[in-house]
């Protein structure tokens, strides 16, 4: 059904109450918003959580002002290539990355928000090529997979506080193209990837070893990993299924948590989170046990991945459909964006 046809009854008790609007910003110069994220910005000992918005040719930094208002601090012009996604660095301050390209990522650039060394905003090329997936890791590292004439390259690059790349390490690549990454919580040196052939691979980040290749089966195509954690000898991986469709059963979930025994490569589904009735899915975003995704109806859905069901649905507003949904780095803060550059911050 069209989004405006959704009623509280159709939402099955889901309500907007669990999403409380905190503030709103509008980038009036934005031609077409493509991504939104949050970043820590520290100047002269004062640290603030800021919003970063990306439109096709530029990325802007917004800081909170008084009375729930936001002010644009700086805009990086990124040249001829279009922005594809913002790549936040989870525990970094004053530093983030951005992926640029046409249909696929051709460049990763780092953006420096502030440096006491030179009091300036900078940008520089971190990596170029036929890049298939990129993720910002803890300790100012960036992992990416790319296709080269010799096969696939999976590389981790470390950045200094002022952005300059310090060193790189190549991880042993699997045969299949890696399309997603997730750091493994609870294991400092472990990294998980999902492949185009529906595989889950595990690396040792310190040694570069490819430790295990495990298969997800073909029941759930196009799985992308968002989060991984190790507990009680098992590896739990949170996967999304961007092309999931509405289903009456759990055969086609938007998200699922799968437990792997890395020793035997056997796996079992733990929790399935289905789409709300009448909606089809898109790629989502996961933080802790919360998942969010923009649906093809233009609504934003939020799931509790422990309960395995949708807990909130944000229908399209009067201005139009939602286009972006990302969790901020602080818990319980959802950034929802529209194509016209409007970004709403919700407390969940």
């Amino acid at each position: 059904p069209a989004a405006e046809q959704l009623t509280p009854a159709q939402l099955g008790g889901l309500a907007e109450e669990s999403l409380q609007l905190m503030s709103k910003l509008k980038d009036s110069s934005s031609s077409c918003a493509v991504d939104v994220s949050a970043v820590w910005w520290e100047v002269a000992g004062s640290r603030e959580l800021c919003v970063v918005t990306a439109c096709e040719g530029s990325v802007s930094l917004w800081t909170p002002l008084a009375a729930d208002a936001w002010g644009k601090v700086y805009t990086w012009q990124l040249g001829e290539m279009a922005v594809i996604q913002i790549v936040p660095l989870p525990d970094a301050c004053n530093l983030m990355c951005v992926a640029l390209g046409d249909l696929e990522i051709a460049e990763i650039r780092w953006l420096l928000l502030y440096s006491s060394e030179n009091d300036s905003f900078k940008q520089s090329l971190l990596r170029s090529g036929n890049i298939k997936a990129v993720l910002g890791l803890k300790a100012r590292r960036v992992v990416s997979s790319s296709r080269t004439a010799c096969g696939q390259q999976v590389e981790v690059v470390s950045l200094s506080e002022t952005g300059r790349s310090r060193d790189g390490r190549t991880l042993m690549p699997p045969e299949e193209t890696v399309l997603g990454f997730a750091e493994v919580e609870g294991l400092q040196d472990a990294l998980v990837g999902t492949t185009a052939a529906n595989g889950v691979v595990v690396w040792n980040l310190r040694t570069g070893q490819l430790l295990r290749k495990m298969h997800l089966g073909y029941s759930y195509p196009a799985s992308v990993c968002h989060r991984a954690y190790s507990d009680s000898g098992l590896l739990f991986v949170v996967l999304s299924h961007p092309h999931a469709k509405e289903s009456e059963s759990c055969r086609n979930p938007a998200f699922r948590v799968v437990a792997f025994n890395p020793k035997t490569a056997r796996s079992t589904g733990v929790v399935f989170s289905s789409l709300p009735a009448g909606h089809a899915g898109r790629r989502g975003d996961v933080r802790d046990a919360c998942a969010a995704a923009v649906l093809t109806s233009g609504a934003v859905a939020v799931w509790d991945l422990q309960l395995g069901h949708c807990t909130a649905l944000l229908p399209p507003g009067p201005q139009g459909d939602w286009a972006l949904a990302r969790w901020a780095t602080t818990p319980g803060c959802l950034l929802a964006g529209q194509r016209d550059g409007t970004v709403c911050l919700y407390r969940y």
Binding site: L187, N204, Q209, F260, K263, T268
Partner: peptide
Amino acid sequence: CGESDLGPISLKWFEELSAEAPS
């Protein structure tokens, strides 16, 4: 180590796989 339908589980799976995998 424990037993389940996922096979024998080891709390030190990461260290063990790192010791076994080619480098």
